[in-house]
Write a protein that binds this DNA or RNA. Sequence first.
DNA 1: TACGGACCTTTC
DNA 2: AAAGGTCCGT
Length: 283
Amino acid sequence: MHRFPLPTKHLDIRRCVTSGQVFRWSQSQDGIWRGVDGGSWFKTERGEVTSNSPPEVFERLFRLDADAETLFPALLAAGPELEPYLDALPGLRVMRPSDPVEALFCFLCTPNNHIKRITAMIDHLAGFGPRGSDGVQRFPEIGAIAAIEESRLRGLGFGYRGATIPHIAAQLLEHGGRSYLAELSRATYREAHQELLSFKGIGPKLADCIALFALDHTEAAPIDTHVWQAVTRLYFPDWRDLPLTDVRYRTAGDFLRNRFGPNAAWAQQFLFYENQLNWRSRR
DNA sequence: TACGGACCTTTC
DNA sequence: AAAGGTCCGT
């Protein structure tokens, strides 16, 4: 058991874990945040973190090695238009989940879906994994997911994803499982993204989420409906309210990569959350 | 290559 | 209707 101070400077847990980057965190009535990531569990209370892992694991998860004092000026130099969003959301981080398998399958639950149902599905999926002696529900391995019957998942409310999730797990095993994912992590962003697109059920948006959160490619800039609104408002006004086609997806993502390079994911996070916070007032 | 429609289910 | 989309027809 470890206890250490919650590094509140440049870290706002609420915003990090409600921005759709991770799905196994929740806040209870008393304001305490509890989260699971890979084999680690965390609990934050009164400015203190309790965990089964040492502080370095927490710091890695919230990417605290990316120092805001140098990162924010770099983002602003490349994109001064981001200033109001950086000011409004100074504690937002791009998270770095520890387990690529967990991150990948969490994002397979997200397409054409909403957060509430996504977390319910992920809790069900986690239930297929082992429960540690410390009571932590570990996420299932790829093989365990591949073995789940489609009807079982449909019965749990997965809808058509009850078919794609075990199928993708089986495909992953054929490609080499975890070592294959490790290869994609070492490959370039572009190679990894293209490879992920070959899976049935993984399109450009999911491939970017997986490249970023499972494989740690920070050039990835997942463009969902919210980021699309922000990007068209700021950079592509002619495309406002137009549907997000493959070509537009590629163009917008390349634009963010050209502008922000390896910090594209940071720019994407601020654009996403800014739109989440303000879309109602703009209507 | 680009556009519609369907897809499971829950929530607003 | 729309949800942090994707696939499969035309």
